[in-house]
Design a protein around this nucleic acid. Structure first.
Length: 320
DNA sequence: CGAGTTTGACCAGCGC
DNA sequence: GCGCTGGTCAAACTCG
């Protein structure tokens, strides 16, 4: 299997997020992107978690991280990151869900209200001519537009010959658009699960057609059909010496773990990767409000998830 | 026949 | 205001 270079970028949930929609912006490394090809991180079980499994932990912790809204303003070093996001008292009790998840929850009332409003609009307009297809579509579009303002997004660059990378979820393609300044179209996918409105966009990098840029939006409200129970975050933080090769730890549990283990922050040689390392060499990386453990020398815990393993860079699985 | 894909049309947002 | 672009819809189509 060819070696694949991967870049992962977290994308904020605000409209002001400067992760440009244009393909032209894919032609250079994303600012603020985490390059997991660096450092000692060898695998990423958390990838599946990143793709939308739920944060099962309660959220009140000294290390309860606020929602990252604009990756471009992310601190360039993990030390700065830790300074900035540690001990944030603003959201000590910010519900029982992570901010990313809470967005989905928070939006529900809006969605309901909006839906009710839309329903009322429809009722008020019942004597009007039947709206064109476009108008009806537009009502939905307004809702989705509002949703778009809240849903966290994160993009992955994956070197792959396959456009639509298997990530353990089932997707339905609902659109395709030609992209300006790019010979490659952009495809739009939606999770086929009825209650799940996660979307993703897939397109090829204009400067390197071998790179597929996949942008996920929202969080899955269900587990991946291919997700093993092994991939659920462990209830108690395991000691690093006996930790699985790769585990996912919700941020709040990580907070406790961090304090217990005295983790030291580290950054990769590009200064854009963040995480903590334990005295015995276990590395923790922060991504999408969760911490991913990648003990040095460990082999991949990840079972076969099809092309997910294509998404998860091989050089994360096997350094060098 | 159901699920998924294709594709033209539509609309909102944004920049000029 | 206008044009461009991104995002979405939905009918038609394909496939198993």
């Amino acid at each position: 299997m060819e070696k694949k270079d991967h870049l992962i970028k977290m994308e904020g949930n605000t409209r002001s997020s400067s992760f440009s929609e244009t393909t032209a912006d894919y032609s250079y490394p994303f600012p603020g992107m985490f390059d997991f090809s660096q450092g000692d991180q060898k695998d990423s079980l958390g990838f599946m978690e990143l793709l939308g499994t739920q944060d099962f932990c309660p959220a009140n912790s000294l290390f309860d991280l606020p929602q990252i809204t604009t990756p471009q303003v992310l601190p360039t070093t993990s030390i700065d990151m830790a300074k900035e996001y540690s001990f944030n008292p603003s959201t000590p009790n910010s519900s029982s869900i992570s901010s990313a998840s809470s967005e989905a929850v928070n939006e529900e009332p809006h969605t309901d209200n909006k839906a009710a409003a839309d329903q009322q609009e429809e009722d008020n307009g019942h004597d009007q001519p039947k709206p064109k297809k476009g108008l009806k579509a537009n009502q939905k579009r307004k809702k989705t537009t509002e949703k778009k303002l809240r849903e966290p997004r994160f993009a992955f660059m994956t070197k792959s010959e396959v456009d639509h990378l298997e990530d353990g979820y089932r997707w339905r393609k609902y659109g395709q658009k030609a992209v300006k300044n790019s010979p490659f179209p952009r495809s739009y996918f939606r999770c086929t699960s009825a209650s799940c409105n996660v979307k993703k966009r897939v397109e090829r990098c204009v400067s390197d057609p071998g790179i597929v840029v996949t942008t996920y939006e929202g969080q899955h409200t269900h587990l991946s059909p291919l997700l093993s129970p092994l991939m659920l975050p462990p209830p108690p933080p395991p000691p690093p010496t006996t930790a699985p090769n790769s585990i996912i730890m919700p941020r709040t549990l990580f907070s406790q773990y961090q304090q217990q283990q005295g983790l030291r922050p580290f950054a990769d040689n590009q200064g854009c990767n963040l995480g903590f390392s334990t005295p015995n060499g276990t590395n923790w990386s922060f991504l999408n409000e969760r911490w991913f453990c990648s003990p040095a020398g460990g082999s991949a815990l990840m079972t076969d998830h099809g092309l997910l393993q294509d998404i998860v860079p091989s050089n994360m699985l096997k350094q060098g």
